[in-house]
Amino acid sequence: MLDADFFRRWMTAAAVAVDREADRLTALDSPIGDADHGTNMQRGFRAVVATLEKEAPDTPGAVLTLSGRQLISTVGGASGPLYGTLLRRTGKALGDAAEVSAAELAAALRTGVEAVATLGGAAPGDKTMLDALFPAVDALAESFAAARDAAEKGAVATTPLLARKGRASYLGERSIGHQDPGATSSALLFATLAEAAGE
């Protein structure tokens, strides 16, 4: 079973990974975006860790809901409402249970990912974070490690795609050949989930 400490570990590991990879995320965002994804995510997840320390939410749902809310208010770019919605909807779906099973988390994350798709109006194959998130939640039924690998594979597979959403879509054919920054940070999120689970 996964308790609030597990989810705090996940968010903390995500903040560490985003810090470590911030330059890479921004570099990926330079040719097809506005070169701020790394710094935006860094600001957001640092704020998440700070607020989790300060407010000490004591259920899995509360940890994710608070984290999502914090991302919406601090990121400053489109990834704020998108990741914020992902975590908040996932947190709400978990309710106020003190512990949740991996299967419950998988179902809740699917709700969260579907909410991201609705908010952004994107579909798999549009070269967005969904191209990492949907394969990850599909693989979560198997294991956290499988979800991590599926997310990474999904992120890498965005490289040949034509962007159909967001600023990158203005570039048309020129968006081809670049890995999507949002799918890359989504893969980090699932890599750190597996890390928190010790896989």
Binding site: R69, I72, G76, G77, A78, S79, G80, P81, L82, G84, T85, R88, A115, L119, G120, G166, R167
Partner: peptide, 14 residues
């Protein structure tokens, strides 16, 4: 555009 639209939508959903 972009994050302006998404942020308003996310706040409304809140």
């Amino acid at each position: 555009l972009g994050s302006a639209v998404l942020t308003v939508k996310a706040l409304l959903a809140e």
